[in-house]
């Protein structure tokens, strides 16, 4: 079996007395779309934060592309090609959509001197294509802060795509997006995976979305890994049903 792209081994994280993650392990292979579900407060976002280096982990190891990243800081992990989006959408509000896109071009290979090039020196067409891809082309000169919440989510997704990550962690990509847009978003996530080859790990509360999207699903509850399997297995797993229905 080939090495997984992302390998989380026995990761634990506590905040004071609250154990947010206990002995969590999960693997994501290159090219997969993997789902992460669980009731509110089950530790999904904490796990995301641990993976991208937002806070140090207490125990365990995290490997990306065969490199241990457990001790790396946020920026360095992002430059390796492991990117995340935020549950509370984060965009650059007082910059236009185009500017948001242009400054999200990958920093990976670039040095400080590259920053001294004109802001219009690269990526204009790519930025426009991706804004078109998420349906924001007509808004490209609007301030990002003036967009609706759903549109900001789409912009954040486009910003992630222009960064050309190898893997993208999406924290509730469909929260706050209206039902018709959600279908379009599922389609775009799949296309990003197939056409751009971006591996996805998705936190999602919308069961319909995650069952449609993911080929493999992990379920967290109370900071522990409760179950994993195909969407079919997860759907029929009694423990998962109990956890979501609050039967304990």
């Amino acid at each position: 079996m080939t090495q997984p792209l992302l390998d989380v081994c026995n990761v634990s994280k506590a905040f004071g007395g609250v154990i947010a993650n206990r002995n969590i392990s999960l693997k994501v292979n290159r090219g997969q779309i993997v789902g992460l579900i669980g009731p509110n407060g089950s530790g999904k976002t904490t796990l995301f934060n641990s993976i991208v280096g937002y806070h140090p982990i207490d125990d365990g190891e995290i490997w990306f592309k065969g490199e241990e990243i457990s001790r790396y800081r946020v920026g360095r992990i992002a430059r390796l090609g492991l990117l995340r989006t935020f549950q509370q959408t984060r965009i650059y509000g007082r910059m236009t959509c185009m500017e948001n896109m242009l400054i999200s071009l990958p920093e990976r290979e670039s040095s400080f001197l590259d920053l001294l090039k004109s802001r219009h020196s690269a990526g204009i067409q790519r930025a426009k294509d991706l804004l078109e891809f998420v349906g924001l082309y007509s808004k490209r000169y609007h301030y990002a802060g003036d967009l609706s919440f759903g549109q900001q989510k789409l912009l954040e997704f486009a910003m992630a795509l222009i960064n050309e990550p190898e893997m993208l962690l999406l924290d509730e990509p469909t929260a706050g997006i209206n039902p018709t847009l959600i279908n379009g978003l599922i389609d775009r996530l799949k296309r990003a995976n197939e056409e751009l080859g971006i591996t996805l790990l998705v936190i999602e509360h919308n069961m319909r979305v995650i069952m449609n999207l993911a080929e493999h699903i992990y379920c967290l509850a109370h900071g522990e890994m409760l179950a994993e399997g195909s969407p079919e297995e997860i759907r029929n797993d009694q423990r998962v049903i109990d956890a979501y229905l609050g039967a304990h």
Binding site: V52, Y54, V74, G75, A78, R79, L83, R84, F86, R90, I91, Y92, G93, R94, M95, E99, L102, I103, S104, P106, E107, R108, F112, D114, L115, L116, K117, S118, R119, S121, M159, N163
Partner: peptide, 24 residues
Amino acid sequence: STRFGLAINAIRDDEDKAEAMGHH
């Protein structure tokens, strides 16, 4: 007018985001 200008504006608007996007 350079990309550096955009980069510091990004810090002004949301530094956590800029860092999460790989900015120094």
